[in-house]
Structures are given as structure tokens and as C-alpha cells.
Amino acid sequence: MRLSFKIEGGDFTQAGQASSEVKKVLKQLGIDAKTIKNIVIALYEAEVNIVAHAYRGTIDVEIDDKKITIRLTDEGPGIPDIEMAMKEGFSTASKKVREMGFGAGMGLPNIKKNTDLMDIKSTVGVGTELIMVNYF
């Protein structure tokens, strides 16, 4: 099964809609609750990251009988130092993002914690690609 979502940067009213849709699909597929929680928390963090930092992005989801693979690509400023961004507490989020309850520098570490595989590539001035895999 494949699902695809377009994400607009800066539009916090829509942030989480894609994650919510994926959660509903996983529930319908009968995936266990703990695995669903891990997947949607990682996806929601990543979706919020696109809204908070990028101009626009795409989420592509592929589900088979053993795993879910989620690829998030965005057009945005990119991440100059991924190692630094992976450290808890490091954040470049704006005041607006912080007012929404995010931007504490917990996102990427929390994605890593909630996924079985995580790969992130970024080019400054172009954008970021994040791939996350969870096994059922």
C-alpha cells in the first residue's frame, strides 16, 4: 500500500493531518498499538519539522506485510550540521514554532528512538530527505 501527502511549510493548522491519516490506516490494518504509537510519533515529529523549517515537502508512505517505510523530502534551508541536530536540546526553531509547543531540540533524537532505521541526508539551501523504517 502506498500513501502520499503534500506538506506546506509554516502552516501549523494542517500539521499532523498526514500523521493522523497514517495512524487510521495502521489501525485498520490491525498493527499493534505500541508499534503504531512509535511510528506516528516519529512521523508527527518529522511532519512538524517540515512545517517548522521547510518551504514545502512530501511524505511518501509504503506499507507491506513486514514493515512501513516513510520517506519525507522537503525544499528548505537544509541542515548544516546533522550531528549537532541529532543532539537533544539543539534547536534552530523560530519563536513562532516555540509558541506552538515545539522547537526544544527533541525532534530528531525522538525520531531515532521511535524507529528501527533512520537515515537523514541534507543539502544546505536545497532541502532534506529523511527515511524512516519500522518493522511490524
Binding site: A15, A33, K37, I41, Y44, M100
Partner: peptide, 15 residues
């Protein structure tokens, strides 16, 4: 005290 949609979305994702 954060009464915005993201508080509810966060709760949704966190069960």
C-alpha cells in the same frame, strides 16, 4: 496551558 490544535494532535499521536 497550551490550548492549540497541536496540543490535541500531540495527544492523539501519544495515545
Amino acid at each position: 496551558g497550551l490550548s492549540n490544535v497541536q496540543a490535541v494532535r500531540t495527544a492523539e499521536m501519544s495515545d
